[in-house]
């Protein structure tokens, strides 16, 4: 008979080996894909994206900014620029790198695929927001624009990606940049978040963990060198001004105040409320499901009972008793509590 101690040891080694393989597997697969995809093509496309982004935001674009953005050496970046020039995708003026019409078209195509893929991930999968970007970075070089068009059609030709960036149309149309950075707002200003920059990832992660999302209305309470303090959805939040620069907002006219609202999750058993809307953070299938159930502005909803575990809570919605989880009910906005509303 096999000695049990030896058997266990051999087994242990196999498990460690497999785990190691599993952890490195993703990296290996990515590397293989990259070499197959031709690294140069990837760099060219990424560089085009970066130059386009600079032009869109009216910032200067240099060899160094390209090297930094693509995480490659300056030598390598110079090669990429030379390649772009030889393909007639850019014009290299002595002081500034500019896209040709051909180059702009190409850049918009790559951006379109990237943003469509992010929208697809946000709407039709359970991947969380921190994974969207990296996944899309890979896909934009992998799928063809015809495949992207089909994908876009299948998710209803979205206009904007989940970060609020406009998705270029098939013909390459894209609207003007709008809004201003959050750190340029004054105290007392009210505004709506229209864009969250997803690079660098660390900053984006912080913004997401603070609960920020596109479509959120905010009121700035305080702004100084250390922090931007603002209120939204009844909660006070604070972020460093550097981080706030990655949030784009559109200011409301001074006369307009964002509506004051509660969340459905704030309702106590027996209370009623009128739905104002569903948060933009609730997307795709989940959003459609809630609307199918009749959660649209004007619907009166009452909290009926709590399950024995505390979550979910059952609500009476248009004559049907529907259980919703807390993660859903806190994304549904209602008017101030109405103790007695006639149905």
């Amino acid at each position: 008979m096999v000695d049990p101690v030896n058997a266990l040891m051999v087994f242990g080694f196999i498990v460690i080996g497999l785990t190691a393989l599993f952890i490195t597997q993703k990296k290996i697969v990515n590397n293989i894909r990259r070499t197959q995809n031709d690294k140069m093509k990837m760099h060219v496309e990424d560089a085009l994206k970066h130059i386009y982004d600079c032009e869109y935001k009216n910032m200067g674009c240099t060899l160094h900014s390209i090297a930094g953005n693509l995480s490659i050496s300056s030598d390598k970046a110079a090669k990429v620029i030379a390649k772009l020039e030889s393909l007639k995708l850019i014009m290299n003026d002595p002081d500034k790198i500019k896209l040709t019409d051909e180059g702009r078209k190409y850049a918009l195509q790559v951006i379109r695929i990237h943003r469509i893929w992010e929208t697809y991930l946000a709407d039709e999968t359970s991947k969380d927001e921190l994974e969207w970007h990296d996944d899309a970075e890979l896909m934009e070089h992998t799928i063809s624009s015809e495949e992207a068009d089909r994908l876009a059609a299948s998710i209803g030709n979205p206009l904007r990606d989940p970060h609020g960036d406009p998705i270029p149309s098939e013909t390459g149309d894209i609207p003007e940049l709008e809004g201003q950075q959050l750190n340029t707002l004054d105290e007392g200003d009210t505004a709506r978040i229209v864009h969250l920059e997803d690079e660098p990832a660390a900053v984006y992660k912080n913004l997401v963990s603070q609960g920020l999302h596109v479509g959120m209305d905010i009121t700035v309470n305080k702004r100084d060198k250390e922090e931007v303090l603002f209120e939204s959805e009844g909660v006070s939040r604070s972020i460093p001004p550097v981080y706030a620069a990655n949030v784009t907002v559109v200011k409301f006219e001074a006369s307009i105040k964002p509506e004051s609202y509660k969340k459905l999750s704030n309702l106590k058993i027996g209370e009623k409320g009128k739905v104002i809307g569903i948060s933009k953070a609730c997307r795709g299938q989940q959003r459609r499901r809630l609307m199918d159930l009749g959660i649209v502005p004007g619907t009166v909803v009452s909290a009926e009972m709590v399950s024995s575990g505390g979550d979910p809570v059952a609500y009476l919605i248009r004559g049907a008793t529907i259980a919703l989880r807390k993660s859903q009910s806190e994304k549904i906005y209602i008017e101030e509590r109405l103790s007695e509303v006639s149905n």
Binding site: T125, S126, K127, Q285, Q286, L290, P312, A320, T321, A323
Partner: peptide
């Protein structure tokens, strides 16, 4: 499963409590 291979699948919760 929900943390690994099923991440790519959509998820939407609702539960009706019929009379």
């Amino acid at each position: 499963l929900s943390k690994t291979i099923l991440k790519g699948e959509a998820s939407a919760f609702s539960l009706e409590l019929p009379p």
